[in-house]
Amino acid sequence: MCRAAFKTWRTFDTSLTAELFQLMRLTVNDRVHDVAPRDDETLLELLRDRLALTGTKLTCDRGECGACTVLLDGATAYSCLTLAVSCDGATVRTVEGLAPPGSLSTLQQAFIAHDAAQCGYCTPGQLVAAQALLDHSAHPTDDEIRAAMSGNLCRCGTYPKIVQAIRAAAEAGAGVGPSAASTADGAPHGA
């Protein structure tokens, strides 16, 4: 994996002389971005505010609800608790990157078919967590699904439909190795 050149520079704004910005490179949904996040910036802020990837949601801002879940080097991460500067060289996948533009992944299709989104606000995090589960376990049992997904809260109570959708997606092959949509990033799926 190609790590970005590590650069720092002092800002030209003299009012901020003490502040250091770190230029870093990360890959989000197969696109490479050079960004210079603040040292207190979260990955969630970077995604939403800098890259306009607003599919990932802010709900609790402290790792309690899972709405901000993304894949960070292939593993689920709460982007609200992940410092952006710690993602130098990382590969990130968000809900927008679960399938190529204009298409839907097997899992997304299963969520639609099983009505697994009511208000839809937690759905991006649910999908990312579910894809991570399927990437690691091609045919999870219901107990495995419940355990893997219990960090993603849904107040509409869509859980039964989400379980159905994940089960159906697994049956349709969404969990047989890395899904078509997630091979491109070279993330360590199944690791």
């Binding site: 607003t54 599919g55 399938a99 969520f111 639609i112 009505d115 759905t123």
Partner: peptide
Amino acid sequence: TSATRVDASEKVTGRARYTADIE
């Protein structure tokens, strides 16, 4: 009939725009 939710694909792709997504 159990027609598919008409805005389901917006919701599963992250395209659905909520108030906090308005810029």
